[in-house]
């Protein structure tokens, strides 16, 4: 028993010396490795997950790690290609897209993929402070004009500056277009055919029963 205790005493001493030296050797290795900087790598690069020696810190505003081109950060709308279909605003789970459409009396242009433009975007605002970066709006966009870019640093000191406005129209133009459409509507009302309701169709009940109406049990 005494021998055992004595043995463990000396084992403790040799253990602590060994472990201390091992730890010290490891930390001085890191100290000398600090002359180097960690290489900047993409996730897709070879050896990305291998142990990287050297300083790890990236002094952000002065230098940054490269962002892949398919990074999904700030939203961008190519307004010339936008048909103002409002799909993005409808799908947005946090309602951060705010659109004000102004209809046009006729087709006034074409998007780059050939879709006719019929609605002016008087307002196309995306509030990035509300955005949850789900990317649903870019999925539903029929003309692929709404995309996520690799720009990630858009911090501002005022939260209102996070509201990005994409519409190119000014007040005067909006008023003009609104007036043009109103005139067109009035013109149409004058020259319109007699309303459908006057022929007695409107008084009829709708032919199709709404399917979602629950069946009520018939009273006996």
């Amino acid at each position: 028993m005494v021998v055992d205790e004595l043995m463990s005493y000396f084992l403790n001493i040799s253990d602590s010396i060994k472990t201390t030296f091992k730890g010290m050797a490891l930390s001085i290795l890191y100290f000398f490795n600090a002359r180097k900087k960690r290489q900047k790598k993409y996730l897709t690069d070879e050896n990305y997950h291998e142990k990287a020696g050297g300083i790890f810190t990236v002094q952000y505003p002065k230098e940054s790690i490269p962002i892949p081109d398919n990074g999904r950060y700030q939203l961008h709308n190519e307004i010339d290609d936008c048909i103002v279909c409002d799909k993005c605003a409808k799908i947005c789970p946090v309602d951060c897209i705010n659109i004000e459409p102004v209809r046009s009396p006729e087709v006034f242009g074409q998007t780059s993929d050939g879709t006719p433009l019929r609605i002016h975007a008087a307002k196309f605002d995306i509030d990035m402070s509300k955005c949850c970066f789900c990317g649903l709006c870019t999925v539903v966009c029929p003309t692929e004009c709404l995309t996520m870019t690799k720009e990630f640093d858009f911090s501002t000191s005022d939260i209102l500056d996070h509201n990005f406005s994409f519409s190119k129209m000014n007040e005067q133009e909006i008023a003009e277009k609104k007036k043009a459409f109103n005139d067109y509507q009035q013109q149409k009302a004058k020259t319109a055919l007699p309303a459908i309701g006057s022929s007695g169709l409107a008084s009829k009940k709708p032919a199709i029963k709404p399917v979602f109406k629950p069946k009520m049990p018939k009273k006996k």
Partner: peptide
């Protein structure tokens, strides 16, 4: 600085 280098940081810059 020693602390930073041992921990692969930069320290005060």
């Amino acid at each position: 600085k020693t602390a930073a280098f041992i921990q692969s940081r930069l320290g005060p810059m």
